[in-house]
Amino acid sequence: MIQAHDSVIVRTLGRIVIPVAQLFGIYVLVFGQHGPGGGFVGGVILAASMILAILIFGRDAPDSWLVPKVLHGDGLGLLIFVGVGGLCLIGGGQFLNYSHLEIPGLDDASRHYVGILMTQFGVAADVAVTGVSIAVSLSADDEDEEATHG
């Protein structure tokens, strides 16, 4: 399942669709505070676009240079989320109380805005990496069997 697809139509269409899907995912992620969407949905859209890249170009293709690097990022999103909470602790407040994010020049509401944005990036990174990781795990079986049989 992880080999590159050999159809020209699929590959050409993938080249067009994947960047658009990734751009839409980032739009949903960043725009989540002003409209429907947010970190979870944006992360899932990013994961779907990267799974599409795996299915079309294969895991090791240079066209999908992002995918092998993404798999090393297990837990990065969780680290961002918990890190924001830890910054609030360092600032002298409760865990994940964004009022205590010590950013100079920002009032209370703006600190909450920044905190929400940063935790959304954390959730998106976690969901995207986990989606790609599960897809790779599910399709890893065939490859191993072929390696042992061949």
Binding site: Q33, P36, Y113, I116
Partner: peptide, 15 residues
């Protein structure tokens, strides 16, 4: 007023 986030769902979920 407290979070400058017009989407209430995001404000509740993330804050």
């Amino acid at each position: 007023g407290q979070t400058r986030t017009p989407n209430v769902v995001t404000a509740i979920l993330m804050d």
